[in-house]
Amino acid sequence: MKKVIAVMLTAGLAACDTLPASGPLSSQIEKQAGKSRQELNRPNAAVYDVVDVDQKTARMVASFSSSLLSRRFGIGGAASRVVIGVGDQLKISIFEAGSDGLFSTSESKQTTIEVVVQPDGTGTIPYVGPIKLAGRTQEEARKAILEKLVNKAVEPDVLVTAAGTTSRSVTVSGAVGKPSSVELSLAGDRITEVIARAGGPSSEPYETYVTLVRGNKTASVLLKSLIENPRENIYVDPRDQIFVTHDPRTFTVLGEVAKNARQNFGANDLNLLEAIAMAGGGSDDKVDAEGYFVFRYEEPEIVMDLLGPQRFHDLQAKGMMANKDGRYPIVYRFNMHAPDSLIVGQSFPIKNRDIIYASRHPTVDFLKFMQLIATPVGTASGVRTLTD
């Protein structure tokens, strides 16, 4: 009898992988982590890694999420150097001490000349000729013009002001009041200032995403992050592109919870514990408390910080691929048996489109197997009794 029971237990455990189930076991998720497609013998398998979340990890993810723009673009403290560009309209006022100079009369000792910077970067000043203006600050342009007027005008002085800054403009489009090309001021403008000049956002800040495109770099953040974290509200550069989109944030909860469903955030912020509570919490008799997972496509900088550069590059070599937004698959694991998980869970932010999965306990599959084999055994026993 002992041998029979042992065989049944072995067969039951082996059969667990083929039983009906709502998703993988915690052990199955961990087993596939870090494996290449060749190792998995699945040519199209997704390559990912699993990260156990502790207080340090939760703080790192939360901190990076609130500083994406300043880290990726490497700016945020001050506006870039403001220079004159092609197409800018300048007002150049020339003053002379005498009343019989090149630019003065008995009625006025000054003349104002309007200049448009040409494609070659120059502007033409009477009695001076073409002079390089593009790439210079207003003060540098003033000094260059003044130098050319020495020995020509009577004790000259020059004032340069901008009438139009076509070269210093950014494009704002999407869910704003007035999508347009916005000219930047000479003092520099931050993202929220530019959006305000384009009519402001049309939706709530916690449902509005701002995407900044600069050269070959791009990043998207919530508008509320720019408001709450001034360092993220970086200065824009000429020719930047800003896209504002309304995208109500959602997350999906699957597995051994009371309600498998897609949920709306409905708030500015949401942490892991709040998200699980919104799904009715884990099932007491089925959920594996050590197997709560968050499946996410994460920013490459976060993945590299979490795994280390060498591990990150090794996984790329094994076939880990970014999605269309340049983010990489990562799986966060939480051990709800640990008492401090109730603290760590409050620090870990849920992001838009996250998948939260509560895996079932391994004994659930074994009990299913026992129920499957119990029915035919009981039926056979009943038949034998009637026959006897």
Rank of each mutant, 00 (worst) to 15 (best):
F73R: 07
R360M: 06
G98H: 02
Q38S: 15
P20G: 06
A33Y: 05
P339R: 15
I234L: 14
L307Y: 00
G308E: 02
P238Y: 03
V47H: 01
L273H: 10
I302A: 04
T379D: 08
K143N: 15
V221R: 02
M336I: 03
K217L: 09
L272R: 01
I356F: 00
E290L: 03
S220G: 09
M321K: 13
V170Q: 08
V257G: 10
L102G: 05
E207H: 08
A78M: 06
I355P: 00
R168W: 11
T112P: 04
K132G: 11
V221E: 02
V117A: 07
L9P: 01
G85F: 03
G135C: 12
I234P: 00
G382Q: 10
P238M: 13
A358E: 00
A322S: 13
T161M: 09
A134F: 01
L69Q: 04
Y328K: 15
E256W: 01
A338W: 02
A374D: 15
D157V: 07
V116N: 05
P24M: 03
T387L: 10
F243Q: 14
A33T: 02
F73W: 04
V170C: 14
N260W: 00
Y328E: 14
Y209F: 15
T363H: 06
G378K: 06
K259R: 14
Q110A: 12
S106I: 11
Y357K: 05
R37F: 01
L272E: 02
S93M: 09
A258M: 10
S347I: 03
E232D: 10
L149R: 11
Q371I: 07
G188R: 08
I330P: 04
M336E: 05
L226Q: 06
A15H: 04
V115H: 01
Y332Q: 09
R59Q: 13
V210I: 13
V86G: 06
L186P: 02
G255A: 14
N268K: 12
C16M: 13
I5Q: 09
S359R: 02
V182F: 11
F295R: 07
V194L: 10
E228V: 05
D189S: 08
V287A: 15
I373W: 08
D157N: 14
D54N: 13
I92K: 08
P329K: 12
D365S: 10
Y328C: 10
L222M: 09
R249I: 05
R197M: 14
T375P: 02
P205C: 07
V116L: 10
S22W: 01
I355D: 03
V47S: 01
E147K: 15
Y235S: 12
V236C: 09
F265M: 05
P238S: 14
T124C: 03
G135W: 04
V61P: 00
N216C: 06
E256I: 06
V383E: 09
G345M: 04
D54P: 00
K91E: 14
E147G: 14
Q310Y: 04
A175E: 11
V154E: 15
L223D: 06
D120C: 01
E207V: 03
T18E: 12
L102K: 07
P309A: 13
G121N: 05
G87R: 08
A374W: 06
E139G: 12
S220Q: 10
T112N: 12
I355M: 13
I75M: 10
V287M: 12
R249Q: 12
T208I: 03
S108I: 09
G87I: 01
S347L: 11
K368H: 11
S359N: 07
G282R: 13
I131S: 03
T165L: 12
Q89I: 13
R353K: 14
K286M: 15
